[in-house]
Simulated scan of single mutants.
Amino acid sequence: MSCIRFNTPAQRRQLAASAPVRATSPDPVAQFLSPSVTASKIARIRRLAGDANPKIRESAALSYHAPDEVYAALAKDPVASVRACVAKNEHTPCDVLRALASDADETVRAWVAINYAVPADAMERLAEDESATVRGLVAWKAQLAAESAASAEPARV
Protein backbone atom coordinates (compact mmCIF):
# COMPACT_ATOMS: atom_id res chain seq x y z
CA MET A 1 0.00 0.00 0.00
CA SER A 2 1.31 3.43 -0.91
CA CYS A 3 1.69 6.20 1.64
CA ILE A 4 0.80 8.76 -1.03
CA ARG A 5 -2.69 10.13 -0.71
CA PHE A 6 -4.57 11.34 -3.74
CA ASN A 7 -7.40 13.81 -3.15
CA THR A 8 -10.52 13.57 -5.24
CA PRO A 9 -11.63 16.66 -7.22
CA ALA A 10 -14.36 17.23 -4.62
CA GLN A 11 -11.82 17.11 -1.79
CA ARG A 12 -9.52 19.55 -3.63
CA ARG A 13 -12.44 21.97 -4.12
CA GLN A 14 -13.32 21.72 -0.44
CA LEU A 15 -9.70 22.39 0.55
CA ALA A 16 -9.52 25.35 -1.84
CA ALA A 17 -12.74 26.79 -0.43
CA SER A 18 -11.48 26.61 3.16
CA ALA A 19 -7.87 27.71 2.49
CA PRO A 20 -6.65 30.95 4.07
CA VAL A 21 -7.08 33.98 1.81
CA ARG A 22 -3.49 35.23 2.31
CA ALA A 23 -1.93 32.11 0.82
CA THR A 24 -0.11 32.43 -2.47
CA SER A 25 0.27 28.82 -3.50
CA PRO A 26 -2.18 27.41 -6.06
CA ASP A 27 -2.10 24.12 -4.14
CA PRO A 28 -4.81 24.20 -1.43
CA VAL A 29 -3.00 21.68 0.78
CA ALA A 30 0.16 23.82 0.86
CA GLN A 31 -1.87 26.78 2.13
CA PHE A 32 -2.63 25.31 5.53
CA LEU A 33 -0.27 26.22 8.34
CA SER A 34 0.89 24.04 11.17
CA PRO A 35 -0.99 24.40 14.42
CA SER A 36 0.19 27.27 16.59
CA VAL A 37 2.68 26.55 19.34
CA THR A 38 0.83 26.41 22.62
CA ALA A 39 1.84 25.95 26.23
CA SER A 40 0.65 22.35 26.04
CA LYS A 41 2.92 21.70 23.05
CA ILE A 42 5.90 23.12 24.95
CA ALA A 43 4.98 20.99 27.98
CA ARG A 44 4.82 17.92 25.72
CA ILE A 45 8.30 18.67 24.31
CA ARG A 46 9.63 18.97 27.87
CA ARG A 47 8.11 15.56 28.73
CA LEU A 48 9.61 14.02 25.59
CA ALA A 49 13.02 15.44 26.51
CA GLY A 50 12.90 13.60 29.84
CA ASP A 51 11.74 10.24 28.47
CA ALA A 52 13.80 7.13 29.22
CA ASN A 53 13.84 6.14 25.53
CA PRO A 54 16.64 7.96 23.65
CA LYS A 55 14.61 7.85 20.42
CA ILE A 56 11.91 9.91 22.15
CA ARG A 57 14.53 12.36 23.44
CA GLU A 58 15.86 12.63 19.86
CA SER A 59 12.40 13.72 18.78
CA ALA A 60 12.44 16.50 21.39
CA ALA A 61 15.95 17.51 20.30
CA LEU A 62 14.77 17.92 16.72
CA SER A 63 11.81 20.12 17.67
CA TYR A 64 11.89 23.69 16.39
CA HIS A 65 9.85 24.82 19.39
CA ALA A 66 11.79 23.45 22.35
CA PRO A 67 12.73 25.99 25.00
CA ASP A 68 16.43 26.87 25.15
CA GLU A 69 16.90 25.01 28.44
CA VAL A 70 15.64 21.81 26.79
CA TYR A 71 18.26 22.09 24.03
CA ALA A 72 20.91 22.78 26.69
CA ALA A 73 19.89 19.74 28.74
CA LEU A 74 19.72 17.43 25.72
CA ALA A 75 23.16 18.64 24.59
CA LYS A 76 24.50 16.93 27.74
CA ASP A 77 22.57 13.70 27.15
CA PRO A 78 24.65 10.53 27.72
CA VAL A 79 23.49 9.13 24.37
CA ALA A 80 25.43 10.55 21.42
CA SER A 81 22.52 10.23 18.97
CA VAL A 82 20.45 12.60 21.13
CA ARG A 83 23.29 15.14 21.20
CA ALA A 84 23.64 14.72 17.42
CA CYS A 85 19.97 15.63 16.98
CA VAL A 86 20.53 18.79 19.02
CA ALA A 87 23.61 19.55 16.89
CA LYS A 88 21.73 19.24 13.58
CA ASN A 89 18.78 21.39 14.68
CA GLU A 90 19.09 24.91 13.22
CA HIS A 91 16.98 26.26 16.08
CA THR A 92 19.51 25.19 18.70
CA PRO A 93 20.92 28.26 20.48
CA CYS A 94 24.43 29.35 19.48
CA ASP A 95 25.88 28.76 22.96
CA VAL A 96 24.67 25.16 22.88
CA LEU A 97 26.20 24.66 19.42
CA ARG A 98 29.47 26.13 20.71
CA ALA A 99 29.51 23.56 23.51
CA LEU A 100 28.68 20.72 21.11
CA ALA A 101 31.59 21.77 18.87
CA SER A 102 33.80 20.28 21.60
CA ASP A 103 31.74 17.12 22.06
CA ALA A 104 33.67 13.88 22.55
CA ASP A 105 31.72 12.21 19.74
CA GLU A 106 32.92 12.82 16.17
CA THR A 107 29.42 12.46 14.71
CA VAL A 108 28.05 15.15 17.01
CA ARG A 109 30.85 17.53 16.00
CA ALA A 110 30.21 16.68 12.33
CA TRP A 111 26.56 17.67 12.69
CA VAL A 112 27.61 20.94 14.31
CA ALA A 113 29.95 21.57 11.38
CA ILE A 114 27.16 21.38 8.81
CA ASN A 115 24.56 23.24 10.86
CA TYR A 116 24.04 26.60 9.14
CA ALA A 117 23.28 28.31 12.45
CA VAL A 118 26.64 27.50 14.05
CA PRO A 119 28.64 30.57 15.12
CA ALA A 120 31.87 31.48 13.31
CA ASP A 121 34.07 30.92 16.37
CA ALA A 122 32.81 27.35 16.68
CA MET A 123 33.45 26.79 12.96
CA GLU A 124 37.02 28.02 13.40
CA ARG A 125 37.54 25.50 16.17
CA LEU A 126 36.00 22.72 14.07
CA ALA A 127 38.27 23.64 11.14
CA GLU A 128 41.15 22.40 13.31
CA ASP A 129 39.31 19.36 14.68
CA GLU A 130 41.24 16.13 15.23
CA SER A 131 38.81 14.34 12.93
CA ALA A 132 39.50 14.47 9.20
CA THR A 133 35.77 13.97 8.62
CA VAL A 134 34.85 17.04 10.66
CA ARG A 135 37.57 19.13 9.01
CA GLY A 136 36.36 17.94 5.62
CA LEU A 137 32.78 18.96 6.39
CA VAL A 138 33.94 22.40 7.50
CA ALA A 139 35.85 22.80 4.22
CA TRP A 140 32.87 21.55 2.20
CA LYS A 141 30.54 24.00 3.93
CA ALA A 142 32.99 26.87 3.34
CA GLN A 143 33.20 25.93 -0.34
CA LEU A 144 29.39 25.90 -0.62
CA ALA A 145 29.23 29.34 0.99
CA ALA A 146 31.88 30.70 -1.37
CA GLU A 147 30.10 29.27 -4.42
CA SER A 148 26.79 30.67 -3.23
CA ALA A 149 28.30 34.11 -2.70
CA ALA A 150 29.95 34.02 -6.12
CA SER A 151 26.72 33.06 -7.86
CA ALA A 152 24.86 35.85 -6.07
CA GLU A 153 27.22 38.55 -7.39
CA PRO A 154 25.95 40.38 -10.45
CA ALA A 155 27.79 39.61 -13.70
CA ARG A 156 30.20 42.31 -14.77
CA VAL A 157 29.94 43.44 -18.35
Rank of each mutant, 00 (worst) to 15 (best):
Q143M: 11
A142E: 14
D68R: 07
A113N: 10
A72F: 03
A16I: 01
R135V: 07
S151G: 01
Y64P: 02
A60D: 07
S102C: 09
A60E: 08
V79N: 14
R13A: 15
L144R: 11
A43K: 15
V118C: 08
A61P: 01
T107Y: 14
P26F: 10
E147C: 11
P26A: 04
W111H: 14
S2R: 14
E58D: 03
Q31G: 12
S59Q: 12
A117L: 03
P93C: 13
G50W: 00
V118G: 00
V70R: 01
H65L: 06
A19M: 11
V86F: 00
L62F: 00
R98G: 03
K141I: 05
F32W: 08
S40R: 13
D68V: 08
A66P: 03
A146K: 14
V112M: 07
S131P: 06
A120K: 12
A66D: 04
A49H: 03
S63L: 06
S34I: 01
A117V: 03
A142W: 06
Q11Y: 01
T133M: 09
T133E: 12
A120R: 13
A73V: 05
R83W: 00
H65E: 15
P28N: 12
A16P: 00
S151C: 09
A80S: 15
D68K: 08
P54N: 07
D103M: 02
A139D: 14
R12C: 04
L62H: 02
K76D: 15
R98N: 06
N7L: 14
V134K: 05
A150L: 13
E128R: 15
Q31W: 03
C85L: 00
N7P: 00
E128N: 14
D103R: 06
D27E: 15
P9C: 08
T38N: 07
